[in-house]
Amino acid sequence: MEPQKNDPKNLWDWFNPKGRNVGGWAFILNRIAALGLVFYLYLHLFVLGKLAQGPQVFDQFIATAKSPLYILGELLVIAAALYHGLNGVRVLLTSFNIGVPQQKQMFYTALLLSVLGTLVFAVRMFTVH
């Protein structure tokens, strides 16, 4: 059927990896990163809300936040933010018809820089603390 506007059952098509090409993967990752960041935003507000519950509650939370699992979660946030931002630059450039024939290489570069950036943060977060 022709899709109905904003029909939620077609939302899956945003993430359907079947038959996708490089640009399609860039789009899928961009959407996943964006959803992750939105989720993180609410999580962040929830955590900030703990400040209102007094210093003990917050300190207790900070203690759990130092667990490796939590750091892994933070790394995901960093990876998502890096990729979403760098891919944003790619989308911005191509939107002025700059480098459209090189959009695949630009995607690979954005991906590589995101991975490298995340690794730098990973090393720092796991060693400094």
Binding site: R20, N21, V22, G23, G24, A26, F27, N30, R90, V91, T94, S95, N97, V100, P101, Q103
Partner: peptide
């Protein structure tokens, strides 16, 4: 358009719609 460039990847007729 959300710049997935799938159109250009599948276009059989060299139109390169994405660009």
């Amino acid at each position: 358009c959300h710049s997935a460039f799938e159109c250009s990847a599948v276009c059989p007729s060299n139109v390169d719609p994405g660009r």
